[in-house]
């Protein structure tokens, strides 16, 4: 397991799986931490990962800049047959995705197991 600590209070743990990666997101995805997150996500896409499971159990808050990271990287992943799956999101965070209509675009499930099934 590979751990990255960012000074902005966001912790990312990435765990490779077959054909993709599980990203455990802990903390706040606010305007400043989103910049780091975007860099990290782009790196992983460049490394060839296609399926991304975002484990958001410990994601406390997401700002519109955080949503922008998923939206701006979406096409690169989906165009190549990959997808974004979110699991374990808190209700308040999920609500933000729902309001914006992103639930129609990405997959949202409750547990990691369901997320893994969604990919396969």
């Amino acid at each position: 397991m590979n751990t990255t600590n960012k000074p902005s209070g966001l912790h990312l743990n990435s765990e490779p799986i077959a054909g993709g990666v599980i990203l455990h997101i802990k903390g706040d995805l606010d305007a400043s931490s989103s910049l780091d997150f975007d860099i990290r996500l782009k790196e992983m896409i460049a490394e060839g990962h296609r399926n991304f499971i975002f484990d958001g159990e410990e994601l406390a808050y997401i700002a519109s800049a955080g949503l922008g990271v998923f939206i701006s990287n979406k096409d690169d992943v989906y165009d190549q047959g990959g997808q974004f799956v979110f699991c374990g999101l808190k209700e308040s965070v999920l609500n933000v995705f729902t309001l914006l209509g992103l639930t129609d675009l990405f997959s949202f499930v409750e547990t990691r197991e369901e997320a893994l099934q969604t990919i396969s």
Partner: peptide
Amino acid sequence: KGMGLGIVRDDSYRKY
């Protein structure tokens, strides 16, 4: 229901 603008970047947006 309804999706934000600038997210789906083609005319498939119509269905949202």
